[in-house]
Structures are given as C-alpha cells and as structure tokens.
Design a protein around this nucleic acid. Structure first.
Lengths: 204, 204
DNA sequence: GCGCAAAGTTGCAACCAATGCAGATTTGCG
DNA sequence: CGCAAATCTGCATTGGTTGCAACTTTGCGC
C-alpha cells in the first residue's frame, strides 16, 4: 500500500476519532463539522471528501460490515442454512463489537437522543435486511421480493438489534447470555419457516 | 370547532397540498421550502410552525394513524389476538389508502429516490413496530422489551410495508389479493408463535 | 361594540450542513 | 527531474432550520 493510501487512511481515522471524541464530549448537535475538521487538522471542506454527511461518520464501518455479511452468506458451504451462517458470522463478529464498545455505546446513545441519527441507522439496517432476505430466499426457493424471506429477515434484524449493548432487555448481558438469546431467536425463525413450508402456502 | 382551529386546519392543508403538488412536479430536492410556502400563500417561516421539517410534510398523517392503531390494539375485545386486531385495522384502513393512492405512490417513489426520505419513513415505521410489539407482549405474557414480541412485530411491519402499492412483488395486486397476502403473513406469525410457545423457550 | 389576552403569522438575522468550482499541493512513476 | 493524477483547500453559494421580536387576528368577558 503506497504512501498515498496510507495517508488517506490516516486522515480518515483522524476525522473519525475527532468526531467521536467531540460527539461524546459535547453531543451531536453542539458539534459542527468545522469543529471536527479543526480537531482533525484538516479543512472543513475535506471532511466531505471522506464522509457524505455528518451522520455518516458515525456509521463509517457499516459499508464494510454489510459487505462482509453479504460475502459470508453468499459463500456459505452447501447445506449450511442462512440461519447457521448468520450465527457463525455473528459469533465471529462479537469480539470486535466488545472491543469497540465505547463507540457502540455512544452510537446507541445518540440514536435515542437524535431522531435523524436513529433514522439513519434504521436506513442502514434495511440494507442488512435485504442481504438476509436474499439469502433466505435462496434457501426457500422464493423470490427475494416475496413475503416470506422479507418477514424472516426483518425478524432476524430485530434480533440483531436487540443484541446490542444498552438495549432495553439486554443491558448487562455477558456474551454467553447473548448467544443464548441469539439461539432463541434463530429457533423462532426456524419454527416459523417450518410452519410455512409445511403449510404449503402459495407464494406469488 | 372555532374559526381559529378551522383556519389552522385549512392552512395545514394548503401547505400539504402545495408540497405534494410541487414534489410531484419538480421532485423533492428541486422544491424549496420557500417554494412550498409561496404556493400555499404563507410566509416561509410559517411552514415550520406546522411541520418540523421538509420531510415531515410527506408523513403528516403518520401521527394520527399510529395513534389510531395503538387505540385499536389497546381497546380490542378480550379474546381477540393482536393479529386479529391488526387484520381488522388494516382492512378498515385499506379503503383510505386506495383513495389516497397518488400520494401514497409519490411517497413511495420519493423513498426510493432519496435516502433521507427512506430513512425518515423507516424511523416512523419503528414507532408502529413498538406499538405492535407492546400488544403482542400482552398476548404472550412477555415484557415489551423481550425478544419474541419484537421479532414478531418486525415481521408484521415487513408484511405491512410489502402491501403498499408499487412494492416489488405486489405491483398490480387488487385489494382482494392483498388481503390474501396479509393472511399468509399472519399465518406465518401465528405459526412462529405456536412453535415458540410449544417449545417453552425461557425468556429473560 | 370594546378592549384585552392568547394564539397565530411574519420578517429578519443568523447558523450550519452540504456542494460546486478552481487553484494550490502532493504523490506516483517514468 | 518533470509530468499527470489524485488530494486538499479556500471561497462562494444554496437552502434547511431556528430564535426573536413585532404585528395581526381571534376568542371572550364586559
């Protein structure tokens, strides 16, 4: 990786770190893009060369995360269901989440404080939902736009969001308990799917 | 209702109508709040006395709709499940949706054109989700923050969103077909619930 | 009707996010 | 070293959003 790319990564980090620090100190509204730029030692205009909006800096890692999830679901071994793959991916990603907990917590706090941030997060979650729905559709032999995969994906996302730290109902759960809750959730999904397949409900 | 309130309602309508007309004609970005205000014959500043943001004018009816849903679920006769009540509410609300179809379609089009609008809609849908989750929690004897009601509510919302006109997979469906799809969705939810209750999964 | 208080409207000024543009700077590479 | 491409920056502009203070209209008691 050349100097150019290293520097770029470095600048991105500087902006991200400055933003999270200032958001934590003063809140989201009270921090201007100019403040972030100054703290990161770049021109205000440069901020927008890295992040399309002030909100996006909070969710900078979503792109690669969703890409990773999509890859994991796409390349799963034959015979492994979407739910199995999902479980595998989540367990492999949990340590990262724990390591990044302060940011995770800040994100969550800001989501409950500012509607625009919560809306943004929901929007990004919708992309996850689509990815899962597509994979479930393959399992079930449905079209991705059919009802079944979309409902199942929506429920899976709800389970995912419930696993975040600070979630009501999961405040102080250690990782072990979280996994147990995840397994409950997947059991629910498998049950729903079984019922639907047994019932032979016409689709489309 | 006094003159004051009548005038206020009239102004709100004028702003709303002007906004929808201009959005349809020129698109969302290309329409400024000043344009809307001028078309509605009020001062630009007045727009914000009625709607907190330019996006909110698109979803002005969500507040009363969600209140209506909450009331319907809260006041359902004993013995009627959340799913039954939900079905009743949707069938009672479908005619209004059909009548309002141009606006519904425009909303949907703008949601796919502008991320900020899609995010906003998702955020509002989250409120619906909470309402449904609370009602389901009562049915199941769970806490509203438990996993089961939230997953079920999320799936229900996904089904709801799939019933909108212009949705991929439901483009040209007449009302009769829509109801059939709704019943499929509810069947899925009942199936999932049955499995979970039979399995006696420990919650919390 | 009169007049007062509350509610609603308006214009003004200001802040800030976001974008286009053009010039300066830096880097990669021959 | 020197050129082309990629980055960074300052500047100007647009437009959403808000606080404030003045002004107008309405509801209501007398």
């Amino acid at each position: 990786m050349g100097l150019r790319e290293r520097k770029k990564e470095q600048t991105r980090r500087a902006i991200e770190d400055a933003a999270f620090r200032l958001f934590a100190e003063r809140g989201f509204q009270a921090t201007t893009v100019a403040d972030i730029a100054e703290a990161a030692d770049v021109a205000p205009r440069t901020f927008f060369a890295y992040f399309p909006s002030k909100e996006d800096v909070l969710f900078a890692d979503f792109d690669e995360t969703s890409e990773a999830l999509a890859a994991r679901l796409r390349d799963r071994p034959t015979g492994e269901s979407t739910f199995d793959a999902l479980r595998g991916w989540i367990t492999s990603v949990l340590p990262d989440l724990e390591a990044d907990e302060p940011r995770e917590a800040l994100r969550h706090r800001l989501c409950s404080e500012y509607e625009s941030i919560a809306a943004h997060e929901r929007h990004l979650m919708a992309r996850f939902e689509t990815i899962i729905a597509e994979s479930v559709a393959v399992d079930l032999g449905d079209a991705p736009s059919d009802l079944r995969p979309r409902m199942i994906a929506a429920a899976a996302i709800a389970a995912l969001m419930a696993m975040r730290p600070d979630d009501p109902g999961a405040e102080e759960l250690p990782a072990r308990e979280k996994l147990q809750r995840l397994d409950e959730a997947l059991e629910f999904l498998r049950g729903g799917v079984a019922v639907l397949q047994g019932a032979d409900v016409p689709q489309r």
